[in-house]
Amino acid sequence: MSKKILIIDDEAGFTKLLRMNLERNGDYEVMIENHSVHALKTAQAFQPDLVLLDLVMPGLDGGDVAALFQADPKLKKVPVIMLTALVAHGETSTGSVAQAAGVTVLPKPVEMATLRSCITDILEKS
């Protein structure tokens, strides 16, 4: 059975193309949520194996959403990869993978190869 990935990001176009890339080889089943306020409900219904979470969003931001997931007994264990276009310290142009409080952070734009290997790494571990 293919693993389930939930993308929470307000960038509709980006999420659409990201899903196309992820679903291409039939590896993953992808669900998109463009409105962070619905993120918890969607996640509870979908029960993803991994979450790709945008940091800067209107309404609830990535941090808020992650906190909501932490409070949910079933979602608490689900690994999260944060995607952000924010310029952050320690970010390199090649896209370093930063471990911050158990959350993997990847900078936007991200190459599919980097994202894929990051996803497989995390899914293997869990």
């Binding site: 960038e11 176009g13 980006f14 193309l17 990201l18 196309m20 890339n21 800067v56 995607l83 276009a85 924010l86 310029v87 936007k108 734009p109 991200v110 190459e111 599919m112």
Partner: peptide, 14 residues
């Protein structure tokens, strides 16, 4: 950076 990186991220996906 933030505003331009988002469209860039989409372009890269494409």
């Amino acid at each position: 950076a933030h505003e331009v990186k988002n469209p860039l991220a989409l372009l890269l996906m494409g």
